[in-house]
Design a protein around this nucleic acid. Sequence first.
RNA 1: CGCGGCGUAGCUCAAAGGCAGAGCGUUCGCUUGAUAAGCGACCGACGAGAGGUUCGAUUCCCUCCGCCGCGACCA
Length: 999
Amino acid sequence: MSTETPLELKKTLNLPKTGFAQKANLSQSEPARLKKWAEMNLYDLIRRSREGREKFILHDGPPYANSDIHLGTALNKILKDIVVKSRTMMGYDAPYVPGYDCHGLPIELYVERKLGEKKAQMPATSIRRACREHAAAALKSQTRDFQRLGVLGLWENPYLTMSNQYEAETARLFGRFVERGYVYKGARPVYWCIHDQTALAEAEVEYAEHTSPSVYVKFPLSDETLDGKAFKRELLGSEDDPRRVFFLIWTTTPWTLPANLGIAVNPAFEYAAIESGGEVYVVAAELVEAVTEKCGLSAPKVLARFMGAKLDRLEARHAWLDRPSLLMLGDHVTLGGEADAETELDVKEARDRKGTGKAGTGLVHTAPGHGHDDFVIGKAYGLDIYCPVDNAGRFTPEVEHFAGQRVFEANPKIVEFLRESGALLFSENYAHRYPHCWRCKNPVIFRATPQWFISLDALSADAQQFEQDDDGRDRTNYTDNEEGAPESLRDGALREVERVEWVPAWGEDRMRNMLRGRPDWCISRQRVWGVPIPAFYCDACGEAVADPSVIKHVTDIFERESSDAWYTRETKDLLPENFMCPKCGASGWTKETDILDVWFDSGSSSIAVLEKYEGLSWPADVYLEGGDQYRGWFNSSLMVGLAVHERAPYRAVLTHGWLLDGQGKAMHKSGGNAISPNDVIKESGAEILRLWVASSVYYEDMSCSPDILQRAADAYRKMRNTARFALGNLDGFDPERDRVALPELPELDRWALAELDTVIERVLEAYKAYEFHTVYHALYNFCTVTLSARYFDIIKDRLYTYAPKSHARRAAQTALFEIADALARLLAPILVFTADEIWENLPSSKPEGDQATATTASVHVADFPLASGARDAGMLARWTRLFEVRDVVLRSLEEARVAKLIGSGLEAKVRLDVSRDVYELLQHYRDELRYIFIVSQVDLSIAENGATEPVRVSVVRADGEKCERCWTYSEHVGASTRYPTACERCTAALAEIEAGEDA
RNA sequence: CGCGGCGUAGCUCAAAGGCAGAGCGUUCGCUUGAUAAGCGACCGACGAGAGGUUCGAUUCCCUCCGCCGCGACCA
């Protein structure tokens, strides 16, 4: 026994002590940790640690290198990082090579605006240089932002679609499509922006409200032709009848009337000839009433009814030009769906105070140069693809009356002209959704111009021919299509769609529908900032030549000099020597001026990146992008994959939803409801953003608002404090030396470890299934309920008051260590900074600078934890019941508190009257109950017969005095002379401590 | 107009053809040895439909409404 003076009681407690700060101060600590990671080359360290493991490739879809990142980009990158890190910790070698989409119109337009007037005089090379600089600056700043989010990857060597190698590969892949016979040059109507003067891809138009003039125009029947005469005779009895017959068409684009070459009717619809004011009009029978009302036809009389098929190949005359307009049959002709939805439309239109909702005549004005359906039917009937509109949207000189005018400005003049000439029956303003350019927001037009296309339906017969890479690697193992049967891109795509795993599952339908309906891919753009289409035109015969051997020659130059060579070098330098026109044998050439669609650039990435970077391989395991990429990158990548390997470039495609604000409205930069990720980082830290991402179901639309972020910040603090409590109580614990074996742990500690096992399994399963919100909820719930409210609260007494080295305390620490270690690992993919910080503060018996630093250096090099095997169904069931009883007790304590009987729970003595079966359970834990309930005393007895509830609780003041040291009430306080204010438990602990000090 | 998705407490998520759960937040209280912390209690919801199937529907079907996305047509 010690003879020294008694110890100061409060100082003998083992209160938590740790370097793990309560306040995270993320806006400062995150950059510091990033710096540390950079210094230790963490990404390389991880790569080396995973060498030889099974690969898991997430292929990064390149964000557009144009401006600062927005919340959507941040969300995208964070999700990818969570995938990569979680797969890494599952044991895969999961490299991450980020990329940037550098070419394209948005940058070119930005540069153009900046250059202003000067641009006109500048050569293409100068503009391209400016674009290149802009992209380089933007991607540099984006890289900084992405890294700041805690995303690990090969940031020092990302792929850039504007690098020499990438540009060369892009051009080379164009060559692949050529070789396969998928590429053709033709005139088809494509979306055309008259402001930016370029063709647009489908993905580049957006629909917006637009008001157009809606006009009803009459085209006279040509009674010169035999058929026309016969038709008139049938209708009116005599071909000499003075009444003239007109076909009544409706359009909202009067400017396309000069290009009218025909009128389409539906063969299955009934049409009627109606007479009014001495003229006869043909309209769809169902629309007679609507049309007469609209056009103010007085006393209309139906003369005849007949099917549309009857009109086939009749000839009308153009409304004002001396030119025929052919009647044609097409199923695309509708009645506008108006019949079914009149009420609905009337309401909507009335709101707009425009139009009345009934439009159309059942006869469709057809201009094959200005519409998709028009083009198709015009082709079928052998019409010209006539498009008298130039790049700037001006009528060409051949257009009478309107030459030189811009189409949208000509609209009212054409209407006026029609009115004066008497061809117009009615006009009004018509509000509808109309395609607009995604960049400049101006309305676009449909315009037939010569463009390069990739055919979706052309068959490629030479499927096996180039299943060899330039380096001779055999590629045939990639394909299923063993017979090498001819297959179109569309068919191949539809086949591959079924093999891919889509998350969520409905993505498959969406992709399939998109692929079924899409037209040929227009890949040429009349711009300069992109990869030039490596094609030439024969000066002698005008033949457009895209030849594989020429393309190879060109791409070799690109590889060395970048695609700038196309502009800096002379044509002869770009062609193989003595290259002659395959058609006419001439050798004078002019280079193509169009560039490739940027979707072709990014679509090339699977080949240009996965097959070129060391450590990557084709195909990717996962693509992960927003839902807008179904028709964008998922689609273009699929086309390239098919052209090269006849396979999809991805095994699985995950999509995330759209960002909405707190009210569920779409988040738009212009809508004023956008949240800037950089602001959030500055104020709260990237961890908060990451935690928000993890907490939401990302494959649906996600809401974000200051309030929602506040919830994430709250959750962060709770998890941080939970970890801090564990770390604080591990002070002085050496896992090697002090760990208590599982069978020797008190049951409560084994229960905690069993709960941990459950969490580990749930979390790992959720990571595997990419369900990060389940990870979040499982971990958060574990922290709040299992740990903070239950386990930690109960073991506090043991941790603080028992002798530091006592078995009971070491047992709790053993569990705490396992818990903290597992928490760090399980949280690591989400809370990348904090998990690492927990990891650092875990006690370790390893001396500093030990060789084992590979895993000790950072949690991100470690693996996920394994379940410890502490689970025991019987034990878990018992504890579930014990906690139910505890809940009842806590409620009673609360009542006693309200009644001012007690304050702290330790002031209470709890009497339990319980049913026999509950008693059976509780009596085994008789001595534990006071700790489980956190009270000073517990009396347990079987309830007398007739008790209704299984557990009845009464609360009274605890017996005895409050122990100064542990705050429990005990009748033994005062029994010790050395420590007169301490209870019997504390007296014993103090003796142990004093003995320990001597030792 | 067509197609697809979504709609469960203030927020984020569960579950299930049979009493709708959790955590957070709010409110109230306790504690002051996790302290710009900790514990407890209370309050709180199935978008609408006297629609259909069913003994029973929030769940399955239909209609409507709202939100989100995509597309078509009007050339």
